[in-house]
């Protein structure tokens, strides 16, 4: 009996130690990057270090809802980070610098706050000096109102505008398109024999001629994933979070004194011709790059590539213009 008693005590101790020790051992050796909604802490850890040219292995998991992972300004497919599951991912950086990683699946009003950084160390052979974005070189004040004084009576059509495009006093170029608003085109054409409607049609044509079907499709995809939750699937500023933003804005306004213009606003309405006819692509680029500084509009500069932003902008004007298919 004595020996059996001892044996069973040993077995019990082993079972308990095993039940505690084994999972603890493996748990402590599995470094996970946890994703939580921004209100509960966002990414943990939110700073990751890596070296140029060396593969970076990441194990991502979500502690609450569906999230996604992507690194900004990189040509990478985003991966889903699912609740209680682990997503393995390997990244290689060929340039040093500070990269932003971010959540790619909407996870609430503060989804866009779910960002972290990857600090990639090491030296690189080619260092390109960053060029200032167009809105800076053009010295556009992106916080000032830019509404168009007049708006089209009917939706401008690129197809109709094409027929007048031969007799224009303006040179159509990418630079011209990006620096001017549709209203500026409309205004410049005021000396011509074209009617007002025809002048708007020409603007529509110019805008379409500066984009491609692929760009528009890419812009549409980016818009659906990143913008529609606030700005609405049809661009009307009535996305599912629009009401929440308004409510949040009202609370902030109450806690602030003075008439600070840059508090939470309702999301911009891209179906509003006043706003869109008065806005140049460069202005919109500035707003997307920098964000709304407290209005609830995120800063996308560290996320989108320049190409992606131009595609997105091209798509935004399609809420105003009738393009040829």
């Amino acid at each position: 009996m004595k020996r059996l008693e001892l044996l069973s005590r040993i077995l019990i101790t082993l079972a308990i130690v095993g039940a505690v020790g084994t999972p603890l051992y493996f748990w402590s050796r599995t470094p996970l990057i946890h994703a939580r909604i921004a209100e509960n802490g966002g990414w943990t850890p939110d700073v990751i270090r890596a070296n140029v040219g060396e593969p970076l292995h990441l194990k991502l998991t979500s502690d609450d809802v569906v999230h996604g992972f992507a690194v900004g300004q990189m040509d990478m497919q985003s991966v889903d980070v699912l609740p209680g599951k682990v997503t393995d991912l390997t990244l290689i950086f060929d340039k040093p610098g500070i990269y932003t990683f971010y959540c790619t699946r909407w996870c609430g009003l503060n989804h866009w706050r779910m960002r972290g950084t990857i600090e990639v160390g090491g030296s690189s052979s080619d260092t390109q000096p960053a060029s200032a974005p167009l809105y800076v070189t053009l010295k556009i004040n992106i916080d000032a109102p830019h509404n168009a004084p007049t708006i089209p009576v009917q939706k401008p059509s690129a197809l109709r505008g094409q027929s007048f495009s031969t007799q224009l006093p303006i040179t159509n170029s990418t630079n011209y398109y990006r620096a001017n608003s549709p209203y500026q085109v409309f205004d410049e054409l005021s000396n011509t024999s074209l009617t007002e409607t025809e002048r708007w049609d020409v603007a529509a044509y110019l805008w379409q001629s500066n984009t491609t079907a692929e760009s528009l499709a890419n812009g549409q995809r980016l818009y659906a994933q990143n913008c529609a939750a606030c700005h609405g699937e049809n661009g009307a500023g009535d996305g599912v979070f629009a009401d929440d933003l308004t409510a949040l804005g009202a609370t902030l306004q109450r806690s602030m004194t003075g008439d600070n213009k840059m508090t939470m606003q309702t999301p911009a309405d891209f179906t509003d011709p006043k706003r869109m006819m008065g806005a140049s692509p460069a202005l919109l680029q500035g707003k997307i790059l920098r964000g709304g500084m407290g209005t609830g509009m995120p800063m996308w500069g560290s996320i989108f590539t320049e190409e992606q932003i131009w595609d997105l902008i091209a798509y935004l004007y399609s809420f105003q213009f009738e393009y040829q298919k």
Partner: peptide, 24 residues
């Protein structure tokens, strides 16, 4: 002994495992 080990493992899993219930 098996039950006790399982029970203690369940306690531990609740503390160190994923906070997502359906996966814990």
């Amino acid at each position: 002994i098996v039950m006790l080990a399982g029970y203690i493992f369940a306690i531990l899993a609740g503390f160190i495992g994923t906070p997502v219930g359906s996966r814990n």
